[in-house]
């Protein structure tokens, strides 16, 4: 296929996607009830129905969103994000940085070059942190999985609270004036500027979206299957309120415990979903589970260790402390609300 034709590919694939999504429920129903003729209403039948319906549904959503985000990200090269954020005032800068954190391509292994690039371009420290907090925590995979498995409200809550934590934590770090705890070599490094890439053509953007799908969906699907299998299979075996004693809302210490357990654990958003599924199913409360998930994805030990190269310990502890407290507040608020 020539490069030019690539532009029309989404136009062809999108109706196929919609048709698939539309006929999924009746398709699965007739497969289970008419082709396999399984006894309706039995635990096994319903578990199978759930699995056969949820797996393609979430996969379809994931493919669409990852493709979309992959295309959108081609407009937000790191250089551009940095230019937008240079010399911004606090709060407005924090808000902008947190939102750009979602759309700028980022992997936690490039946290250090990002940090230095931002500081060199005059992005305030607090604004830089807002970016570094939002970028890993709010990502498209987490949002799609939450949406597909727990509904749009849970997904929205996750995005809004994640953004709030990133904005407020970055603001607080900015106000504390901790610039002296940045390793001195960061300010002395000879940072070349002006590596602006040539603008991409449409077919290159679409190419980029497609390789995002291949890469991300290719990596995530085993976790996804595990999560849905757990959701389908768990009903009968473990008592419903198994986790309620430890992670239910009655125990005040469940939220700090969830955050403390989450920080050393490091996983991608997909890997955490099966665990979230089990916890919620077995009586853990939403706030506690949300706090656990945010701590695992947003605060990771490896990233903190990497940041040690550019930050001195007091700043690292402040960063982890402020974000952890933010996550705990979110956990408590949700346990109290729901």
């Amino acid at each position: 296929m020539t490069q030019r034709k690539l532009i029309y590919l989404p136009l062809v694939l999108l109706p196929i996607w919609v048709a698939f999504y539309w006929f999924l429920q009746p398709g699965v129903d007739s497969l289970v009830d008419r082709v396999l003729v399984l006894p309706a209403g039995s635990t096994w039948t319903e578990a199978l129905r759930f699995f056969l319906f949820e797996t393609p549904k979430v996969l379809l959503l994931l493919i669409l969103v990852v493709f979309g985000v992959g295309v959108v990200r081609t407009y937000f090269a790191p250089e551009r994000t940095r230019m937008i954020l240079g010399h911004r005032s606090l709060l407005a800068g924090n808000t902008l940085a947190s939102m750009l954190g979602i759309v700028t391509p980022f992997c936690s292994c490039s946290a250090v070059p990002f940090f230095i690039g931002f500081v060199e371009a005059g992005v305030p420290l607090g604004v830089t942190f807002s970016f570094l907090i939002a970028a890993p925590m709010i990502n498209e995979v987490a949002v799609v999985l939450l949406f597909g498995l727990f509904g749009w409200k849970t997904a929205l809550i996750y995005v809004v609270t994640g953004l709030t934590i990133a904005i407020v934590s970055g603001y607080i770090i900015g106000r504390l004036r901790l610039e002296r705890y940045v390793q001195p070599w960061v300010y002395e490094v000879n940072y070349a500027t002006g590596t602006v890439e040539a603008p991409l053509s449409w077919s290159e953007r679409i190419q980029s979206g497609m390789s995002a799908v291949v890469e991300i969906v290719g990596k995530v699907w085993p976790y996804l299957l595990a999560g849905i299998a757990v959701g389908a299979g768990i009903h009968g075996w473990v008592p419903q309120d198994f986790m309620a004693g430890i992670m239910g809302k009655s125990s005040w210490w469940s939220v700090p415990l969830a955050v403390a357990m989450g920080i050393p654990l490091y996983s991608n958003a997909a890997g955490i979903i099966p665990i979230v599924q089990v916890l919620l199913e077995k009586g853990a409360s939403l706030g506690t589970v949300l706090a656990f998930m945010m701590a695992v994805i947003g605060l990771s030990l490896p990233e903190t260790i990497i940041l040690r190269k550019v930050l001195r310990l007091p700043l690292i502890f402040t960063f982890v402390g402020v974000v952890a407290v933010g996550i705990m507040i979110v956990g408590y608020v949700f346990n109290w609300l729901f």
Partner: peptide, 28 residues
């Protein structure tokens, strides 16, 4: 080496450099 990476002015890894010229960054 992080200091060498940064000396090329890139933020997102992986960076591709050919004959000391940055070709792309942050994209596989």
């Amino acid at each position: 080496d992080i200091q060498r990476i940064i000396s090329y002015g890139i933020m997102a890894t992986p960076g591709l450099v050919i004959d000391e010229k940055v070709i792309s960054q942050g994209r596989v």
